[in-house]
């Protein structure tokens, strides 16, 4: 019996040691970064879910874009650089203790202005501010699944936001009114809380009239 107890004690201590060493204290101190770049990509929203596409053709009721704000030295930038310079296997990166690195922007997007280069219909002419014609979705933010949010409410969620593993703020924008012309192009300007404005243009979209 005594032998059994000793054996049990050793096994328990061994497993306890394993538990202690497997625990890891993650550094939760956010790494500060600054939004310096903006990237606008086309979304294919013909199907059930929106996906990024390189095509410049869109249906008149499915005009959608994805806007990304990031630090030019962020992971978003690294990924693009590695693809260009390093053939074969890309560099493997592991986080110590599997900790996600928290990122926090020094400034946050405060507002957005979207202007159209072309007329959308008879009432919305070229050069008009069409921000109110868009609704948005933000990846990673809680929302009623399946629905959009107003553009303002999506950006309000970015205030003091902690980004894990990538300091990229991504917002998907969806145009509500149907485009009655055959071309579309927009200028998207994001005003940051420090007063800077990041602007980007969409590609010229060919509207596939049905």
């Amino acid at each position: 019996m005594r032998t059994f107890r000793k054996l049990l004690t050793v096994i328990i201590l061994f497993n306890a040691a394993r538990i202690f060493t497997s625990c890891c204290e993650c550094d939760e101190t956010p790494v500060r970064f600054t939004f310096r770049s903006i990237d606008v990509r086309n979304l294919d929203n013909k199907g059930e879910w929106a996906i990024v596409t390189a095509s410049n053709n869109m249906a008149p009721e499915a005009v959608a874009f994805e806007v990304s704000l990031f630090d030019s030295t962020g992971y978003f930038g690294y990924a693009a650089l590695q693809k260009a310079l390093l053939p074969g296997f890309s560099k493997a990166m592991a986080f110590r203790c599997d900790c996600s690195i928290p990122f926090q922007a020094t400034s946050y997007p405060e507002s957005i202005v979207i202007k159209t280069f072309f007329a959308i219909n008879d009432t919305i002419q070229a050069g008009a501010d069409v921000t109110g014609c868009f609704v948005a979705r933000s990846s990673g933010n809680g929302t009623i699944s399946g629905l959009y949010q107003s553009v303002e409410s999506v950006f309000s969620l970015a205030r003091d936001k902690i980004y894990y593993d990538s300091g990229v703020e991504t917002v998907q924008l969806f145009l509500m009114p149907e485009i009655k012309t055959d071309k579309a192009k927009f200028e998207i300007s994001v005003r940051l809380s420090d007063g800077r404005i990041l602007s980007g243009n969409t590609q010229t979209i060919n509207i596939r009239q049905q």
Partner: peptide, 13 residues
């Protein structure tokens, strides 16, 4: 029930 228009951005629940 979540719904979406094909070839369109329209969504409703």
């Amino acid at each position: 029930i979540e719904q979406k228009k094909p070839d369109g951005n329209f969504r409703r629940t």
